[in-house]
Amino acid sequence: MLSVGDSCRELGVVSVQRNSLPMPAVGPNTSALIPSLDAESSAWIVRLRGDSPDREQALSDLHALLLRATRFELRRRTAGQPHLRGGDREDIAHQSADDALLAILAKLDDYRGESRFTTWAYKFALLEAAVNVRQRAWQRREIPLDADHWALIADRTSTPDGVAESRELINALGNAIDQSLTPHQRAVLVAITLNDVPIDVLAQRLNSTRGALYKTLHDARRKLRAHLRERNLDIHAVRQSE
């Protein structure tokens, strides 16, 4: 999903100036391809078309909707971040709404009418705001990539009945992380699952993408589960205890 933000950059927009957004043209056939579209969503598509006389007003209206969504996300996600002042939050909200608008216009022909248009649009705004907040929060922080914290897990309490089995599982998992994974798989797994590094922050630091890193994580987990199954360790019991 980092590709959503990437799509804005692919448009050649490095620094978006408010009120002067370079708007990509929108294909004329979107609404014609979606016969089941509700009236309000249809109206949005028609108004946003490149040849619509109402397009400028539609862009302004959509931007206002997106800004409400990004402000909502900013309020939700920055309550515990005192380093973000009100002015900073407002800047991030505007930047995120700008980026979301560009992403939406670039992908308008992909809208299939499987939800209301506004729901489809909100997800871009919320994503951009969340990514911006996460990037800001990790701006000058070191990304922990080593597996030293595995030992901390072994010290956590568990239910008394499951202690012995859990200990065996912990040891087997520790061995699998050390021995079965490539260094890259190990770094990605540890950063995301043990150290709570957001995947888009990690993608930026490693010059990768969210999708590519999740594939790496997925492959690493598959190796770990196979390692445990070979030793007849019950991973279902753990998942059901979540």
């Binding site: 999903m1 922990p144 914290h149 901390l152 897990i153 072994a154 956590r156 309490t157 568990s158 499951g162 859990s166 599982l169 912990i170 998992l173 992380i177 797994l189 699952t193 043990l194 150290n195 709570d196 995947i199 969210r210 999708g211 999740y214 594939k215 994580l217 997925h218 987990r221 770990l224 589960r225 445990l228 991973i235 753990v238 998942r239 205890s241 979540e242």
Partner: peptide, 26 residues
Amino acid sequence: MSPPDHISRDQLIARVIGPSEAELTC
């Protein structure tokens, strides 16, 4: 940096091994 304290050992193990069912990509 260390795993969050409010998460139990079993929850952390579950995070590490991930879902075994077929899943979508991001």
